[in-house]
Design a protein around this nucleic acid. Structure first.
Lengths: 236, 236
DNA sequence: GCATTTCCGTATCGGCCGCTACGGAAACGC
DNA sequence: GCGTTTCCGTAGCGGCCGATACGGAAATGC
């Protein structure tokens, strides 16, 4: 009984797990092999951290969800903090980065796609509500400085990515010149942060999508500068 | 040495403390009187909860900040949960309610005043950053159901107050008819929630004020006459 | 003065925390 | 088969958690 079944994950996850499992069997590892799937255990740990946050997730909670005993956890992941960091990496590589919003042709479309993706993801059934990083940030108030710094860096990176995309839009002409990319990125970062909290509070997907749509209304409209293609500006 | 000095509070607090102190001395209380100021201790406890959240604030942290020993804490406040609830009440009566934004003549002015007040309050020096209620909500993930319900009610009340103010604006004609008060209140609730998190993350007051100003840009514009055109919004 | 009432400080309580020592079992290379 | 290596499960470590038992001290009413 390895799979816990509490938080089913998409197929691509299982594929990745299988590949990793084959990969780690190739070298000449001696002795008894590990009897549980490391990535599956990591997914289970991620779900617990996502649900409860960092400090509130006890080793007992984690081992129960992972289906292993404490020594196996420590042998495979080091300690609670390293396990959490591994879970964060997995969370980001499987979810955050799975929305290549920066590939959208315009900055507006990119931000809009990101907001809609977040509104859906934060209220998706099958995993805890809200964003794992936000939950962790709130519950790691007196964790190690290293962990806090890592989390702060991740958040700063997310905001910086939005800012860079907006600046690119200014350079390419699909965002009005003189637009304050920093202020705009701060605004949308605030929206996303707030949506995560609202989702955790039980807000419906419809409500979050409405908020996202509202927020998009104040994205600076293009002054019909390049190629004169009129956008469906929903401005008020 | 009673005052801790870590988190100085405004004068009105001290006045309230003095009045309460006089009040509680009047009845025929026998035996040795309490040797510490209950309200001052409550303020110190509030600061700890505000800084660390509910679960991360230990009795040891609290007693150290309050300048008393555990038995005095339990005698005066019951247990940790009741102490926290008392701190929440004090927080709200001293801060949340101290911004009578609903008295503003128009709904727009009310929301704008609220947002600006929050932007300043959340970054005010002299007390922890962010909103105590938000911090508590995030760190009370596995607290008692009763406590979680109380916190959820408080948040719902705050949102409902905004919604009611917007609806009043619609009735009185300073907000366009057909405005979706619920969606608008949800949006501003999301903004405020997000601002609290951003403040905790170290965002500057200037940044929060800019975000608040951005958010005000999409408050439905008043038509010059209350009987003007309807405007469609919140479309997916 | 006295008896009574209440508070305060010390010194814990049982329980859970993150974490690990240890011995036996399982899978390896040969 | 063998010895070696690694893993697993039990059982428990020291430490902090929230919460208290208890005895002495302080302030009361009389």
């Amino acid at each position: 009984m390895r799979a816990r079944g509490t938080f089913p994950f998409p197929p691509f996850h299982l594929i990745s797990v299988a590949m990793k499992s084959i990969e780690t069997r190739s070298p000449g590892r001696r002795g008894r092999p590990r009897s549980f799937d490391r990535d599956a255990a990591l997914d289970a740990a991620m779900a617990v951290f996502w649900e409860k946050g960092y400090e509130a997730a006890s080793i007992s909670d984690l081992t129960a969800a992972m289906g292993i005993n404490p020594p196996s956890l420590y042998a495979a992941f080091g300690d609670k903090e390293q396990l959490f960091l591994a879970a964060v990496e997995r969370y980001q590589s499987a979810r955050g980065e799975s929305c290549p919003y920066c590939d959208e042709p315009t900055a507006r479309a990119a931000i809009e796609r990101l907001l809609q993706y977040m509104a859906r993801e934060l209220t998706e059934a099958g995993h805890p509500r809200g964003c794992m990083m936000m939950m962790a940030a709130a519950t790691a108030a007196n964790a190690s400085p290293r962990l806090q710094r890592v989390l702060a860096d991740k958040r700063a990176q997310a905001r910086e990515r939005m800012r860079a995309r907006i600046r690119k839009g200014v350079r390419e002409g699909d965002v009005p010149p003189g637009t304050d990319a920093t202020a705009l990125a701060d605004f949308y970062a605030t929206i996303i942060t707030g949506m995560s909290q609202q989702a955790r509070d039980g807000a419906s997907r419809k409500s979050l999508l409405a908020t996202a749509a509202q927020a998009m209304r104040l994205f600076p409209a293009t002054a019909s500068k390049p190629s004169a293609r009129r956008r469906e500006d929903v401005t008020a």
